[in-house]
């Protein structure tokens, strides 16, 4: 069952007299119990996409559907409850003056779920589920480590039993050993509760571990998307290949031979006519400069490149 769907969503922000095209035509479907990872560099629009998906702001154009219903009009408010967010920095996302218990109960109070004793019982149960001790209920965020705080943030996101959790770089601020604990917890909760994750990350190894589907974004648009194994092991877009080749791996066999990385992404306020990747692409031709490539099915994935068939062969 599809619990989250984006249909050609666009989000523009006015910057002076110009428009910043943060997200410019992205579509995806996410089914219950599955994980879709959005990868890309800073400024590619992945966090904006997360905020659109979590219904924290409306798209300029296009549609978001949660549990099959379009998030428009009065339905928006109730559908918001079905998609909860976990943020990157657990030092900033928890109110330092509230106990962990209060943080967990708040979503239930706001939405008038249950009686106070029921809410407390529910919060305590959730603490246990995310692997925190009962004492945590009356403690404050500063008494916890980064990993424990991220557990609290996950618990809070789950209090309303959402169908989808949108996690924006949930482990980027954590050390490797703690990162492993939080990723394990997220997978356990997914197996137990059938939650779908929209998982925003820049770390290819983490994405490979967590996601079944991947969406690679570049300059606000999808460069390549589809099955994680296909996209990450047989990438067909030159940008995906650059991303993989730039990622440092521990295993020498995974390392790409040296790539020359040149240039930087184009400015999001001054879009160029053709393909956004032309300034950095090693295979660029005249066609790329004039004609924007459309997302099309090549092999098992959707690729926005005129030469996707050829690039898979390199």
């Amino acid at each position: 069952m599809t619990v989250l769907e984006a249909v050609n969503v666009v989000r523009h922000y006015p910057v002076g007299r110009k428009l910043l095209r943060a997200v410019d035509g992205v579509s995806f479907q996410l089914a219950a119990g599955r994980t879709l990872a959005v990868v890309g560099e800073s400024g590619c629009g992945k966090s904006t996409l997360a905020r659109l998906a979590a219904l924290m702001e409306p798209p300029t154009a296009g549609k978001i559907l949660v549990t099959g219903q379009p998030a428009e009009g009065p339905a928006r408010r109730t559908l918001q409850l079905q998609n909860q967010m976990v943020f990157q920095n657990p030092y900033a996302s928890l109110n330092p003056r509230r106990t962990i218990g209060e943080a967990l109960i708040e979503p239930l109070t706001i939405n008038r779920r249950g009686t106070r004793p029921e809410r407390i019982a529910d919060a305590r149960q959730m603490l246990d589920r995310v692997g925190l001790r009962p004492e945590a209920f009356d403690r404050y965020p500063h008494q916890f480590s980064g990993g424990q705080r991220q557990r609290v943030a996950i618990a809070r996101a789950l209090m309303l039993r959402p169908a989808v959790v949108t996690a924006d770089e949930p482990v980027s601020a954590l050390d490797v050993s703690v990162q492993a604990q939080v990723l394990n917890l997220m997978r356990d909760l997914q197996d137990e509760l059938g939650i779908a994750y929209l998982f925003i990350s820049h770390d290819i190894s983490v994405v490979r571990h967590m996601a079944q589907d991947v969406l690679v974004m570049y300059a606000g648009r999808p460069a390549e998307q589809g099955d994680a194994d296909a996209v990450l092991n047989r990438p067909r877009h030159p940008y995906t290949r650059l991303l993989l080749a730039s990622t440092p791996f521990v295993d020498p066999a995974r390392r790409a031979t040296t790539v020359a990385v040149r240039g930087e992404p184009p400015s999001p306020v001054d879009p160029i006519p053709g393909c956004a990747f032309t300034s950095r692409c090693p295979h660029v031709t005249e066609q790329c400069r004039t004609e924007r490539p459309l997302l099309r099915l090549v092999d098992k994935q959707l690729v926005a490149c005129h030469y996707a068939e050829r690039i898979g062969l390199y």
Binding site: S177, A180, L183, N184, R187, R208, H209, V250
Partner: peptide, 14 residues
């Protein structure tokens, strides 16, 4: 604990 070294395993050693 590196995800890179745990390919195919559902859980990461912690």
């Amino acid at each position: 604990a590196l995800p890179e070294r745990a390919e195919g395993k559902p859980r990461l050693p912690t």
